[in-house]
Amino acid sequence: MSDARSDIFARIREALKVKAPKPHLKGEPVAGKTSAVAKPWLPDGGESADASLAILAEQLAKLKAVLIRVPDQAAAAKAVAELATAKNWQKVAYHGHPLLRPVAAALPCEAWEADASFEKQKLEGCDAGLTTCESIVAQLGAILVSSASSGGRALSILPHVHVVVAEAGQVVPDLGSALALAKARHGDQMPSMLSFITGPSRTGDIERILVLGAHGPKELYLVLVG
């Protein structure tokens, strides 16, 4: 296959011998990091923590994700337990994380630490998946999960409901900040999966009518502590 590789590179180098003009822009091109350059043009993510939280709440509501704000860990455990009772969950899978173990322990139903003894068929049968996250993007209402923060790849997508427990300090204003944070935290040892989750799974494939719960979770809860 090295043959195809060198052929393709030869074609590319040959093609690029002729320079292309810059695109027709509205303004002058600005040098610098894309997110810094585009920040004043993109949707607002808030200049203060409070402003960001307000934007986040608005975005999540539009996305039909549910935001539950609680003052402390104990209240978070109570809120998730109430959800489990209200929704009649029988089995909840959770990521083995210090923030989540007390929440799982307070559940009124079976709780299974999925990443300790992973089994995909068993996970498919769970009502809800409980994870932490890397960060939360106010600007877009997006929650960044990773294979490191969320018990692998499947826990945040396979169960019918996804519950994220996070701290208010994890909210960042915009997408650029979330990407920079992930890079700073993991360097060149990125988790094998990083996923921005923007609301419950959805499709508009039938007559462009919105339906929630296409293949992933039908419901998404963000329990924000602090």
Binding site: K62, M190, S192, M193, T198, S201, G216
Partner: peptide, 15 residues
Amino acid sequence: QPMTCYNTLYSGPRK
């Protein structure tokens, strides 16, 4: 949409 529902970055197989 503001963002599509899932935007996922993959680097390598299971680590």
